[in-house]
Write a protein that binds this DNA or RNA. Structure first.
Lengths: 113, 113
DNA sequence: TTGCAATGCATCGTATTCCTATGTATCATT
DNA sequence: AATGATACATAGGAATACGATGCATTGCAA
């Protein structure tokens, strides 16, 4: 079972940022595998989503890259810039807050605070 | 403070469906106001999002409409069809499940099950 | 009484973003 | 030798939320 791809919209970038925040640095393929593992195979990030997202994060100055050669194979590591670290905290906070709000909207009877 | 509009993607339809499930029937403007109220003004559904979404739900056979005249003003009520009711339960379940999964992904240290 | 805000419906064009499909290349295992 | 995993990347398409705009009624305040 995989989630409707629409659900990922708006959260993919936050997932990437938060992974980089906790792991320090990662390469693309590693990110897809880590998300797959953590989500019990329920969230599968595709290359067609991941790489454009990473490139955009770089354009926006939120991540920096360094390329390494592993044998003859190129590997591109991503890590957060100071700006990226700040943005990550904001995004994660916003996402958690959004979830809480949505819970209330989706279940009005639990809204008695 | 309003959430980044990207966050709503993939959840708007579920919000509408669940509101109809709990309220029985609602009209468009009423939906925007109810979501605004329940979310403490943090989720503001725009007409440009709402009406296309409602029309799509109708095309998909998930909601039915009835038009009423309130004074000289037209009001269009939406309610769930039997199909819509089933879909609503599935969507809400999927969304809650997605949140749980995402929590784990966003905070690996809490993933020790 | 005039004008503005709120109520109420709707659509067009735009931006975003995720995916499918495709391409290239290395490496390990069979 | 072939296949699957590793690893990067992009082009084109689909979905969807929004901004802008339009129309009409109603209520209220200046």
């Amino acid at each position: 079972m995989t989630y409707s791809k629409e659900l990922l919209k708006g959260t993919l970038t936050t997932i990437i940022l938060q992974l980089l925040e906790s792991k320090g640095r990662m390469y693309g393929y590693e990110i897809t595998q880590e998300v797959k593992k953590l989500s019990d195979e329920k969230i599968l990030i595709k290359e067609g989503s991941l790489y454009p997202a990473l490139h955009k994060l770089k354009d926006d100055g939120l991540v920096a890259t360094e390329t390494e050669m592993i044998g003859n194979r190129v590997r591109k590591y991503y890590s957060l810039t100071p700006d990226g670290s700040i943005t990550t905290k904001e995004r994660v906070k916003e996402l958690n807050d959004f979830f809480e709000t949505l819970k209330i909207v989706l279940n009005p009877r639990s809204a008695m605070v």
